[in-house]
């Protein structure tokens, strides 16, 4: 029997097949008689611009509404990323420099540095993370509402950097919390951080950011205590 995409043909075919082979366990019900004059699916779907795709499934005009709504939300989110006003160390000064007159990230809608984590979208971890600070930082991250993103700024934050051997430094912030964008440099120039934040915008628009996986995994406490060596 030839493979077909038409459900009506398939139904007929299956019934014929079963009848011929005698494999139908119960007597098949009365055959579905579909008069040829009845409108086909194609006719019904035509006003909505729907058509079958060669590999299966349908595409059409109204599809725009749910899919493109997501796009709009992503665009809105990408253009309004409020960082948390939080700096750990040297990089914090360059982070502030990113917001000042010369390198103005307010252009991208990232300016109001919110003081409260409840109102922030991006946590820029700027500076060396020590074991004593790891707990408060993770708590800050958990206090931020979804969707949220994390940018690790500077080598100390991405890997421990020059303090990697130290007894009190966490060797990379990704040991205690998820990170979306890593910005290298010690500290990165403001232009570097802006580049990282623009990369983050791309992530947000492609909806590939950390918060998505975070949601998929379900909210979970990140074990930070056992992670450091």
């Amino acid at each position: 029997m030839a493979l077909t995409n038409d459900p009506r043909e398939a139904a007929r075919g299956r019934a014929d097949n079963e009848a011929a082979q005698g494999t139908a366990l119960v007597t098949s019900p009365a055959r579905i008689e579909i008069p040829d004059s009845a409108p086909s699916d194609d006719d019904l779907l035509a006003p909505f611009g729907m058509e079958e795709h060669p590999t299966g499934g349908f595409h059409g005009l109204l599809e725009v509404i749910p899919t493109k709504a997501d796009l709009v939300i992503d665009l809105i989110r990408a253009n309004s990323l409020w960082p948390l006003l939080s700096g750990l160390s040297c990089c914090a000064i360059e982070m502030m420099s990113t917001a000042t007159s010369k390198n103005d990230i307010d252009r991208f809608g990232m300016f109001p540095f919110r003081a409260s984590p409840r109102q922030a979208d991006v946590l820029i971890v700027a500076g060396t993370l020590t074991t004593k600070m790891a707990g408060p930082l993770v708590r800050l991250w958990e206090q931020m509402p979804e969707p949220k993103w994390c940018v690790a700024m500077g080598t100390c934050t991405t890997s421990g950097g020059r303090f990697k051997r130290s007894y009190s430094v966490v060797q990379g912030v990704d040991r205690v919390m998820p990170v979306d964008v890593y910005v290298p440099g010690c500290p990165p120039r403001p232009e570097g951080l802006i580049y990282g934040l623009l990369k983050l915008r791309e992530l947000v628009m492609a909806r590939r950011g950390q918060w998505r996986t975070y949601v998929d995994r379900g909210p979970q406490r990140v074990a930070w205590e056992g992670d450091v060596r």
Partner: peptide
């Protein structure tokens, strides 16, 4: 102590030239 990075200890394990890089931050 929330930014204690143990710079003194690290400097004691670094050469004299390298110490000058550790004290920067």
């Amino acid at each position: 102590g929330y930014l204690h990075r143990g710079i003194e200890k690290l400097c004691e394990n670094a050469t004299y030239t390298t110490v000058l890089t550790y004290v920067d931050p």
